[in-house]
Nucleic acid binder design. Structure first.
Lengths: 137, 137
DNA sequence: CTCCCTGCAAATCCTTTGCATACAG
DNA sequence: CTGTATGCAAAGGATTTGCAGGGAG
């Protein structure tokens, strides 16, 4: 991701490096404040504003996708392949499931003239962990 | 929808009737403030709070789906069948496209233990109208 | 008559913005 | 050096909440 940023003409700063290091290891879908909470531990000076700026930069350079959530906590997804997000309404976790698109964007375009630039597929419900807890009171 | 509300044990008020009347005729996906703007014209006293309350009630009784939008304007969808939303990032219009689900929820459950309660499928991009305007400057 | 619903105002809270300072290239 | 990035504080804005009064059943 650092290389991609550099290619986009962006400067490589300590803060950006920290955010990217954090995101790289992750397949969950952290919110801006989760990212901030994590990186402040490594550099107490880093601001929430910068985390927002960096995430916005990564979104604009196409390295991360923004998922807007019901509760005003946007989440950031580093998985760029089209996939299904399984969103647990109880604990807020998001996991991925690979799949074929239900309709090819080219078909949508020839049928309706709509040009697709981003895809978002979600099933909402309860993850197995939360389901277990609820069943065992 | 009124009947369903009554069955759910909710009271039928003038305000709720107005909101439902407005939604019933609609296949676009209005925001709370659009709904409010429309119903105030028929009853100048109705408050935005009540519109929010009513929409929340309809969501909880399963008659309407909430679509959270990037720009903080939630949108409400009366089409309960699983379908694809084509969201135009330029003008904000949303149109529907019927389709088969990419993965059956029962398959998701047996594979991952995740129990699906709601489905949300979106392609974002540019609608044909906006595409035409942009091509013709 | 009771309790739910309404509506006003104020609060909430994530996210942006303005601007002076710091630092990557 | 120069212009981008940072970070603080304050603004922004849709949605929620608290609470007194009103009306459905």
């Amino acid at each position: 991701m650092l290389a991609a940023l550099r290619e986009a003409g962006c400067r490589i700063t300590r803060q950006r490096t920290l955010v990217i290091d954090y995101l790289a290891d992750r397949d969950d879908h952290p919110s801006a404040s989760q990212v901030h909470a994590a990186v402040v531990r490594k550099d107490p000076g880093i601001s929430l504003t910068t985390v927002y700026n960096t995430l916005a930069t990564l979104v604009h350079t196409g390295q991360v996708t923004e998922i807007d959530f019901d509760d005003d906590h946007n989440r950031y997804d580093t998985n760029l392949e089209p996939h299904l997000n399984l969103v647990c309404s109880r604990c807020g976790s998001i996991s991925d499931l690979a799949l074929e698109l239900p309709v090819r964007p080219s078909e949508v375009e020839s049928a309706t003239g709509f040009v697709t630039t981003a895809v978002r597929l979600e099933y909402r419900g309860m993850c197995s962990r939360c389901g277990d807890e609820e069943a065992m009171p």
